[in-house]
Structures are given as structure tokens and as C-alpha cells.
Write a protein that binds this DNA or RNA. Sequence first.
DNA 1: CTGTTAGCGCGTTCAT
DNA 2: ATGAACGCGCTAACAG
Lengths: 352, 352
Amino acid sequence: MTRRNGNVTIRDVAQLAGVVPSTVSHAINHTAPVSEETRQRVFEAIQKLGYRRNTLASSLRQQMSMTLGLLLANVADPLEAEIAAGVSEVADREGYSVLIGTTSDEAQAEDRQLARLLDRRVDGLIIVSTDSERRLHAYNEIDIPLVLVNRQTPNPLVELPSVEVDNQQAGYLATRHLLDLGHSAIGIITTSLSNERCEGYRRALEEAGLPVRPELIYIASLTETDLMAQGYMAMVALLNHAPLSACFVVDDMRAIGAIEALRDRKLRVPEDVAIVGCGDLSLAALVCPRLTTVGHPKRHLGAQAVHLLLELFNNSLIDQRVILPCELVVRESCGAYLHPGWRPSRSRLRLS
Amino acid sequence: MTRRNGNVTIRDVAQLAGVVPSTVSHAINHTAPVSEETRQRVFEAIQKLGYRRNTLASSLRQQMSMTLGLLLANVADPLEAEIAAGVSEVADREGYSVLIGTTSDEAQAEDRQLARLLDRRVDGLIIVSTDSERRLHAYNEIDIPLVLVNRQTPNPLVELPSVEVDNQQAGYLATRHLLDLGHSAIGIITTSLSNERCEGYRRALEEAGLPVRPELIYIASLTETDLMAQGYMAMVALLNHAPLSACFVVDDMRAIGAIEALRDRKLRVPEDVAIVGCGDLSLAALVCPRLTTVGHPKRHLGAQAVHLLLELFNNSLIDQRVILPCELVVRESCGAYLHPGWRPSRSRLRLS
DNA sequence: CTGTTAGCGCGTTCAT
DNA sequence: ATGAACGCGCTAACAG
């Protein structure tokens, strides 16, 4: 029943049904009224011949492909995979197909994939994670609708539609949680000082009347590609610089690496040092200790990206920049459960 | 530079270059010799006009789309995501694009996606994981090349090209490892008695001259959708039935659930009960204790699927069924490190 | 080596 | 409500 045809065309259907191709087209696409009787005959013919419309031809004619291009660095990355799932789900629901292109974070591969997607006449583009400043103006030159997801560059020179999480809030919630638990020597392992999560960290500290101590801020060495190793090395360095009783690590993988470093130093988590991560990867609930972290609406990122794109198609570009909220997920790595006096503060909590 | 054109066609290029469209086509596609001089002019014109080939039109004409359809249940699943990464990588290298369709494991969604992919005239289909017997003959009706990846039905009535891991070997290696460590009361948590991994378990036992004791075999309740919960419940049941000192769980997520059940019963892993999983998900190295498991060449699964498909395109269908080897990954959950007498046996080992 | 012609399969006029 | 004719952009086949 779901077989492809061996080239039966709309003309064959028309012939068998005793009508002309355009009538078949109308019957299929409800693009003009067709008498019930001919409709019957047409669909019988379709059934009988195993006709399948040729989307290629249709797209060529209609100047739209009903296809979205999804550009990402690596589908195997859990975050990107979740985003892709969100994209796929709503694209499907809206009648669009999605063409994926993986870039391995290489500019050259990205150019190739981009070109390929454009050649295939995708109606819109969703670009995940890869938005270094130098790529942005390349994107800006593209004249089809495009949305960035999970952007890395917070305040770029060129503005493009995007969907992202509220990274500042993420940093704020994480730090705030640590403050609520009574910590004051709170370190941070970040990717840069301008990282929005780092901003949130500062804001929480300042709001609590605490100084932002430079020796408690560590910028992970990005030359190391293994994120866990980055976190490990960062924590080792941090421990040498200053005593700290808690640390916010701007993403889960690095947080897990940091915990490992602590363990190797015979420091207990959370008793000696409390750790909060960011991202809430599915494995965060499975490591030891279970990681307290700030969760992101990963699927929503993808879903919203498609919705934003559809709005762009309609020229009803409402919000050029969609910012999704995130939420603290309290588990074990901060020892909240050890503090009977602690209670959920302002944030929505999900106890796992 | 990577901008899409606002409908400049091959004709526009031809006109500007003072040649005829087919010459431009030849120049681009190296499909016939073109004098160096005209080649120059053509490429200048292309540059100047920002011409991009329209793959849709080309596909229509050539009766091939250079597109592969990838059908999977859920891109967010780590295994499927890895497979997708493998597919994408080699498809790209071979000049193919990939169109994804996610089915959420619903037959209805799968039919829809399948139809959509066929309508888009994909040249071949890669179908991941979803191959229940009742779907197989639907696939069999499809008249374009198709390969199954990571099939679930071991010996189906209808044979189709497929790429899979050596599941029997997986079960064998896992059980064998446990035997090597001196265990004899070895349980198994499986999804069915005909599971190939379960076969491997039996083979290892028999080879060691040990009886296959039915009370040590537990079939997970598939009505529970959460795999960890399945593993948890299975282990609880197993502990009530019979004493066991080790257990092979046919996949990592269920194994993690089983470990949790053990922990809740105050049984230590590996000291009281040793556990081997299967799959080597990336999180296997991160849980406590780090999971000893049988690793699968996940990316290769995808990569080989594409290669097999390409062979099918050439009608050079060598192996209709590709079976990839797997390997034991020794970590902590079996306590191999506690046995100084233990040494790697026949299998290739990768110490993590 | 270059040009001509014809059509891939479909959807759209516009006429009946 | 139905039909005839044209063209979307590209390339295969053949001619020159």
C-alpha cells in the first residue's frame, strides 16, 4: 500500500479516470471544486495505479518546497538531538519535511551544507549553536527566512531572529540556589566573562550584597575539546587559587568533570563543595551524586524555532528574538536535602 | 557569498556568458568538455549573478534526487542519534542529502513519514529500529532500495537488507565475562526469550557446562515505557525469585535501573551483585558504579547503512545483511578490577 | 567543442 | 465544472 510508483504520473491517472490532468490536480489539492462523481473516479484511478504525487515537480512549479533545512554541528550531541526532535515534530505537524546538515563545527563543512540546502530550495533555515560572529554576516546575506537556535553570541553586531533560553536567568537561579543554602565563597567555571550565565552569577552575588571575587572565576580552556576534561582541569586550577565551598559550572558535562576532580582530591560533593550545573542533560539525573542543575526546555527550542520560521514566512515577524525560561532542578549535588531550613524560593522547582 | 539567488536561472547565466544553457550545464557538471575560455566566462557570469543551481529541477530531470530518507522513532534517543550522525556524515561525503522522518514509534506517523519521503523521491531509505514483523511486509512493498538498521526482529519472515550488531556475540561476551570472574548464578533481564542477546547468554552458559536456570531469566514488562523503571522492576522480581551473584541486562538503561533496585535493597554493586549492561551509551561511563557493558559501533551502524544503500544503487548487492562486531568495555560494575587473577580473555578490550 | 530541441511531472492560467 | 496550453529550471540526446 505504501509503495512507490514506477513513474505513474498525474497524466496516467487522468487518462484512466477519463479526465484531464488539471482536474486530477484539483481533486487532490482541493484547489477548485470537482464534482463528487469525477472525484470518485479520480481517487479510484489513483488507488488502482498506485499513484504518488511527485513533490519535486510540485515544488518546482509552486516555487516552494515545503522543506526546512536544519543545520547543526553534531546530531549525536544530546542537546542538539533534543532540539532536532522538537524541530522534526512540529515541522511534521505543519506539513514540512526537514533536511539535515551536520557541520562538525567546521566552517568549511558548514559552507558546503549551507550551499546544499539552499540549492535544494529549502523554504527556511534553522541553525543550531553555530553562530560565531564571523559566520553571522554570512547568514545575514542569505535571503531566505532563517532562525538561530541556542545562539552562543549574546550581543552580536548583526541581529537575526533567534530562539534561546534565558541564560542570564539560568546563571542567576543556579547562584541564587547556592546563596540560599548559605554559601558565600561561590566559584564559577565559565567559558568567557561575557557569558550570559556568568552575568547571572554576578547579578545574584551583587543582589546578595556579596563581592564578585575574580579569583573565584575560572575560564575553561577551550583548546581542550573534551568538555569533561575542561571541567576537571578548571576545578583543579580553581582549588589551587582559592578556597570555595560551592561552584556553579556553566554546563553539565563540565560540571561532571569538575566533580571528578573534586573526588580525586578526596573532597566530597556536596558536603565539602556544592556543585550546580546547567542544561539538565538526561544523564544529570544518573551521575553520582545526582546533579542539581538548571534545566532548559530543549525540545521547545526546536519547536519554537519552527513556529518562528512559519511566522517569518507570513511576514508576521512578531518577536525577532524568542527567549525561553529555564528552571532549577534540585537533586543531590548541592546538598539542599541536607538543609532542613532550606525551602524552595522564588523559582519553580521540580524534584526528581 | 553563500546567498541564495532571487531566481536567476541557468538561462540568465547562459545569456550573460553568451552561450546556451546546456553549455553552462556542461561546464558546471563536467558532463562534456568545455573550452577553457567559455568555462571562464560561464563561471564569471555565475559569480556575478549569484547563480545557484536548482537541485529540484535537476532531480526532476535526472530522475534521481541524491537524497536519502532516514526514518527513525526519535532522534533524541542516544542510540538513534549516533546512528543518524553516522548516516549524515557519510551521506554528506558521498554527495547525498538526508531527509529525516521521526515516527514516535507510532505506525500511523510512520506511514505518513514514509509516504512523504517517497513523494519527495528519495533515492533510498534507511529505517532505524522500527521493524516489527507487521511493518516488514509494508517495507517489502516499497520499490526503492532500503536498508534496516539495528533491526529488532532477528529472523523475520521477510528478508530485507540490514545492518546490525552481532547481538548474540554481545550476550555471549557479557556472560562470558561474568563466568570468567567466577560467577555461576548469573541472571538475565531480557526483552524476550528469542532475543539474540539472550541466545548468547545461553550459549556462554552451556559452553561453560552450566545449566540455564529458568528462574534466573526475567522478561521485562514492556508495558512500562520507562526503560529504567523496567530494569528496576525486573531486578526486584529477580531478587525475590532466586539468589544471584551477577546479572546481564540486555541494555544500559535497564541495567542502570537494575542497579538502582539493588542499591535500594542495600546490595552493593559489584561486591554483592555484578552487573553487565549492553550498548555502551555515553552515560555508561558516568554512572556509579561505572557500567561494564558491551559496546556497539553505533556510528558505524549508520555509516555502513549508507554504504550498503550505495551498493544497492549499483545493484552490486554483496552482503544483504551486514553484521558488525561488538566489544566488551570493562569498567566497575562487575568488579573485574577486584580480581587480580582475572585477565582479558579472547575479546578485544578497551579499558576506560 | 557548442547549439537545438524536447520533455522530466506538475500546477496554473484562461477559456469554455 | 472541465479542458488546452504553457512554463517552473534543468539536462539528455542529438546535431552541427
